[in-house]
Write a protein that binds this DNA or RNA. Sequence first.
DNA 1: CGGAGCATGTAACGCGTTACATGATTCC
DNA 2: GGAATCATGTAACGCGTTACATGCTCCG
Lengths: 187, 187
Amino acid sequence: MAKSGKSQFAILGMLALLKESTGYDLKKHMESSTQYFWKETFSSIYPVLEDLENQKLIVRVKEATKKNDRKSNTYRLTSEGQRILEDWLMQPAEAIQLRNELLLKLFFGNMVSPDVVIQHLEAYKKELKAKLIIYQENKNELSKLNASESLYSLITLDHGIRHIATSLRWCDDSVKILKSVDSQNIE
Amino acid sequence: MAKSGKSQFAILGMLALLKESTGYDLKKHMESSTQYFWKETFSSIYPVLEDLENQKLIVRVKEATKKNDRKSNTYRLTSEGQRILEDWLMQPAEAIQLRNELLLKLFFGNMVSPDVVIQHLEAYKKELKAKLIIYQENKNELSKLNASESLYSLITLDHGIRHIATSLRWCDDSVKILKSVDSQNIE
DNA sequence: CGGAGCATGTAACGCGTTACATGATTCC
DNA sequence: GGAATCATGTAACGCGTTACATGCTCCG
């Protein structure tokens, strides 16, 4: 019953990292670390947490007893939860199948003016640049920690940074191509 | 009623490209062109086609009359469909929010042996290499056409190829890092 | 004759997202 | 006092995926 999927493992993993956490805090930490490849909403976190508790994969170490500190539920992994998490970590990851609306629009680019396509690319560039700044900041922060703590965060973050750089170059090159084609048509 | 979302536009766009097509053929063409950033299943295509017809965005130009050629329905865009498609093409594309299971597993990499992580990366590399070959073949095919026909296909395909190349390099570099860390711990 | 490919659909399910709803606490 | 943040949840919806179900035709 209730959610099953991958959210479960994302939450389990995050809980393992934090040792102890509330649902709220789990989300905050995801926002500052996994946000670019994994997000959860409160609407999935709380039911999943309940589910996980029912499955004995996590335990509530602090109850929301109406009048204690901040009416928050704090959870911790059980050894069974630890085992399930490790099992999942060892399974091969399923290939992602993305739906990229920008690429879909570009693919149909000949149905509109090249200017429209160029505008889409420019807007995308803007997004990418903003993201790049954030990622670079994150990277700087992580670099201050010792390697054993930040190793895997840095590897995943590096993935993001490299892909942004690649996208940025692709945007620039594509815009150039479109502009040159456009000017040829005008002549 | 029935599907709305983006599938609608993907199908509308593909129909515009093909001028006339059956649902089956639409899917075949997507498989050989947009598959790496957009896919549709028969279970979505047929209901969407019905929906689109009800909305007068497409018309059935050949009916499946039990005993005509192959009992297939052939559709074509209406001018209204053309308009709706162009409207959508001009709207800014929504940012994709991906869920990348591989990255999630890597992020939690310190909970398992580095070998497990390396295996994930190697498996991913294998996938990427297989894809790269297909994309490169597609690119060769497209290069034979004249530029105006293949321009946008090449741009989107190029996006895929570049990102694969980037991922491949990232995998290699990450494996190297993990192996060096691993050997340090053994000492 | 048999298998691959053509062709169309339905039903159920999974599962994430959005909107809705509430209330305490901290800080300015 | 009021905004921002902490904190938790429910209900409905959207919408894609999987499994199921069927039948023709072309080719060897």
